[in-house]
Amino acid sequence: MNPDPQDNFENRLRAALQPVEPSEGFADRVMTRIAADAVKRARMGASRWFVMALAASLVAAIVVGEQWQRRQEQAGIEARRQLLEALRVTREKLDLAYQVVNSEARSPSRDAGS
């Protein structure tokens, strides 16, 4: 007499679904793995933040560098303007001295008379 195939299936299913005691240290292994996953996730998060911070720092450095360069350029242009202005005033005063000396040298009699 052949066993009923349905019974056979049920037996196998029952056997498969039979509660099995976890092996020793299973819970510890699960907890360790959870902890490791958490660390990995934290590391990934940290590295993402690091990359973002690095990118932000680079952008900030470029912006600050450009501003510094622009300020240096403005300071240079202003220093040049001041230098030329200072030399202009100096020349003007040297010229004034020249003119007075020259005009008085040309008309000594008038000065002598006054």
């Binding site: 240096q72 300071a75 240079g76 220093a79 040049r80 001041q82 230098l83 202005e85 200072a86 005033v89």
Partner: peptide
């Protein structure tokens, strides 16, 4: 106008 050595260098 006050241009010291540093500012003269920049100018």
């Amino acid at each position: 106008i006050s241009l010291d050595e540093k500012l003269l260098g920049i100018a």
